[in-house]
Design a protein around this nucleic acid. Structure first.
Length: 211
DNA sequence: TTGTGATCATTA
DNA sequence: TAATGATCACAA
């Protein structure tokens, strides 16, 4: 958290310079650049391993792009959605519960008209879901996992879910993976991810900064 | 191919 | 203009 406090208020350009990162003109081709930068700054065990960013303390790091008014500009990716081998899968052993059990949120003032180099790092904070918040996420998870388990993955769209939705998460629309189809047969479908809706992350920010 | 980091950009 | 569906880079 000392590191978090130390980078609060810095622009992405300033932090990039400190770490010898080259700031891109835009994020068109480097959508994960900001996340990689703050991982390096905060000492997260980088890489694409399926473990928490800070594996020894079980904390997940999430940057959160916000508008001038402090509203989240994007949904927040949580994890890949399991589409097969769902037997025995419960909320309690789900990747979503694990990932969201402890999160370090790092707001970034990232309005689209601000050049990447001038975007400002906000005050990061640790968060754990309240009982109510966990119930909201759990309901969305169980409802949508049920659809997948019963072979109705293709009926899922981003409209579902009160606070967490399922959307494509793939290299492109041609990427396919195995899933359960009607009649229990194996079908090919787009890989999906769980995303926290902006209304939910906004409430987390409100909870943190209103107090 | 799947998982990590996400944002882009068209649609509703 | 917000939200959904599409997409980008890199590592293992």
């Amino acid at each position: 958290m000392q590191r978090v406090d130390n980078i609060a208020g810095l622009t992405l350009g300033e932090l990039a310079e400190q770490l010898s990162f080259k700031t891109p003109q835009d994020l068109l081709r480097e959508k994960g650049w900001v996340g990689q930068l703050v991982e390096a700054a905060l000492g997260a065990s980088a890489g694409s391993k399926p473990i928490p960013d800070f594996e020894y303390i079980g904390v997940e790091l999430k940057t959160l792009p916000i508008s001038y008014h402090g509203k989240p500009l994007e949904t927040t990716y949580v994890s890949v959605v399991p589409l097969t081998q769902l037997t025995g899968l419960t909320w309690y052993n789900s990747t979503v519960k694990k990932k969201l059990s402890h999160v370090l949120w790092l707001p970034i003032l990232a309005e689209r008209d601000i050049p990447v180099v001038e975007r400002v790092i906000g005050q990061g904070f640790l968060w754990q879901p309240s009982p109510v918040q966990e119930q909201q996420i759990r309901r969305d998870w169980e409802e949508q996992i049920e659809l997948i388990a019963t072979g109705n993955v293709d009926q899922i769209s981003g409209h579902l879910g009160e606070v967490m939705q399922i959307r494509p998460k793939a290299a492109n629309a041609k990427a396919l993976t195995d899933a359960i189809g009607p009649n229990g047969k194996c079908i090919q479908t787009l890989p999906r991810g769980f995303y926290l809706k902006t209304n939910f992350t906004q409430s987390i920010l409100a909870q943190e900064f209103s107090a």
